[in-house]
């Protein structure tokens, strides 16, 4: 009896161990294949040059630049929106009916396929918002076309649930006893949030921000119709009027890593010939995402220490 019971335990443990090994094996297989096929391509030239010869030669610099620029813009839009919403939901809205409905809506938003966001982006941002702004300005077609602005706005909507959920979790993790202590000292609600809750939640919020960036950087569908370009002979950069300082031009189209991989694999005249470039681009994208996650972990560690007053 006891032997058979024990052997069930051993069986279960081996089963779980097997599953873990399998998951790990798949991961290693994918990353290994990408690395082995890509690492020779990724040279300084590959990283710093534009594509040449109908994108069968040269580098991917515009795509790297575009990816960073579009996710940067996305972050500027989504961070205040998401953090603000999460603070409202956790600290002010309580657990009423309205708050529950909003929470459910946010969770559902996280489950919507990204192509839906892409179509929404075209319909709402480009055609509705952009065209109406153009009509109001009367200066011709400026906003009513695919642009980095609309692509990053679409990505912002896509990553909104990531920010809201992680921020909510970070806020909830702040112990009630700390809030009570602050209230007991005569803090107002805002003072409790600003002096006790936010400093402790900062690491979590930051993690959410970086997770949203690594999510946004890897997306293709949302930017497909809203601003990503097949090929651009120039960087989406313009000078700020009167100041002469170059900056990202949010009204221009842009190249992007994930989209670059997609078109190389499906739209290119000769996908087999560009296979090394595809691997190289994939490796760069994976490395970029990995780097972002690593930053998230490092920052979290740093902020945890700081949050403890050490």
């Amino acid at each position: 009896m006891s032997i058979s019971r024990n052997s069930y335990g051993i069986l279960f443990e081996s089963l779980c161990r097997g599953m873990t090994m399998l998951a790990f094996f798949v991961l290693v297989l994918i990353l290994g294949k990408i690395f082995l096929n890509g690492y020779q391509i990724v040279t300084w030239e590959f990283l710093s040059m534009a594509p040449r010869e109908g994108m069968t030669e040269g580098g991917i610099f515009p795509a790297i630049f575009g990816t960073i620029a579009v996710t940067f813009l996305m972050l500027i839009m989504v961070l205040p929106l998401g953090v603000g919403a999460a603070i409202y939901l956790v600290e002010y809205a309580g657990d009423g009916r309205a708050a529950r409905i909003i929470r459910a809506a946010v969770n559902n938003l996280a489950g919507v396929p990204s192509i839906v966001f892409g179509l929404f982006g075209v319909g709402f941002f480009v055609l509705f918002l952009g065209r109406n702004i153009d009509a109001a300005l009367g200066q011709g077609l400026i906003f009513g076309q695919p642009a980095m602005l609309w692509a990053s706005a679409t990505l912002a909507v896509l990553t909104l649930p990531v920010i809201i959920v992680t921020t909510e979790e970070a806020l909830r993790a702040v112990p009630l006893s700390h809030r009570e202590a602050a209230y007991a000292l005569g803090a107002t609600r805002w003072q409790v949030i600003q002096g006790v809750v936010l400093p402790q939640a900062r690491a979590g919020i930051l993690t959410g921000a970086i997770l949203s960036v690594s999510r946004g950087a890897g997306e293709t569908a949302p930017i497909l119709f809203t601003g990503a370009a097949y090929f651009l002979p120039r960087l989406p950069v313009a000078e700020i009027p009167w100041l002469g300082i170059p900056m990202i031009n949010p009204l221009d189209q842009f190249m992007e890593l994930a989209y670059h991989i997609f078109i190389m694999a499906t739209q290119s005249t000769n996908p087999t010939e560009t296979l090394p470039i595809q691997y190289g681009t994939t490796l760069v994208l994976v490395a970029l995402t990995f780097l972002l996650n690593l930053t998230a972990i490092t920052l979290r560690f740093f902020f945890r220490r700081e949050a403890a007053g050490r």
């Binding site: 112990p175 700390h178 007053g309």
Partner: peptide, 8 residues
């Protein structure tokens, strides 16, 4: 309070 609750 009942349990020491210093801020971090």
């Amino acid at each position: 309070f009942q349990r020491p609750n210093p801020f971090p």
